Amino acid sequence: MADDKDQPIIIKKKKGGGHGHHGGAWKIAYADFVTAMMAFFLVLWIVGLDVKTRNGLAEYFANPGAFKIDYRSSPYIMKTDGRPPVMNDKVEQASRAEANIDVAEAEALAGRIRSAASADSNIRSARSGFDVKIKQDGLAVEFSENAKGALFIPGTAELKPEGRQLLQAVVPTLLSSKRGLSVRAFAAKRPTGERYGAWEISTDRANSVRRALSNAGMPPDRLVKVESSGDRVPKLPDDLGNVVNDRIILHIPFETE
Rank of each mutant, 00 (worst) to 15 (best):
I134F: 03
L139Y: 04
L250Y: 01
K225L: 13
A104R: 10
N63G: 06
R124W: 01
V183C: 06
Y76S: 05
S128C: 09
K52A: 15
G16K: 14
S128P: 01
G24V: 13
K5R: 11
I10F: 09
P8T: 09
G48T: 07
L181D: 01
E145K: 12
I123T: 15
H251V: 11
V34A: 04
D50S: 12
E255R: 13
K178M: 08
N242Q: 02
R112S: 14
I101K: 03
D3Y: 06
A62V: 10
R210F: 04
Q93G: 11
V132G: 00
G82M: 03
F152K: 03
G163V: 10
R114H: 10
N215G: 09
W26K: 10
S229R: 15
K27M: 12
L174R: 02
S177R: 04
S144C: 10
A117C: 04
Q165W: 00
I153W: 14
N100V: 04
P75T: 15
S176K: 06
V243F: 08
V226F: 03
A25K: 13
L139Q: 03
V91N: 09
E105D: 15
P191H: 04
P172G: 02
E158N: 11
A185M: 07
L167T: 01
S115R: 13
I46P: 00
T53L: 06
A106Q: 01
A188T: 09
D246V: 11
S202Y: 13
A117I: 05
R54C: 00
D32H: 10
V51H: 08
